[in-house]
């Protein structure tokens, strides 16, 4: 199962979710869907913007685990 883990990177960059959502140009509601794992897919453009703002690699925020 693929999981999005933004909280660790947000804490490392000392950034709030509100600030991130404003910087990458998505609503807080959509960022919340992403953080809570309810999202079914992520666009490359969104992933690109997140990686750019958090200065990280996709692998830093996307995790794979075997259990569902």
């Amino acid at each position: 199962m693929i999981k999005i883990d933004l909280d660790v990177m947000l804490a490392m960059r000392k950034m709030t979710s509100l600030e991130l959502s404003e910087r990458i140009g998505i609503t807080q509601a959509n960022l919340s869907i992403l953080r809570t794992g309810k999202a079914k897919a992520i666009r490359f453009s969104t992933l690109d913007a997140i990686c750019k703002e958090l200065d990280c690699q996709p692998g830093d925020i996307i995790k794979y685990s075997k259990e569902d």
């Binding site: 998505i26 959509n30 079914k40 992520i42």
Partner: peptide, 8 residues
């Protein structure tokens, strides 16, 4: 539609 709405 659901999948589209949950694509961020």
């Amino acid at each position: 539609r659901e999948e589209n709405e949950l694509t961020i």
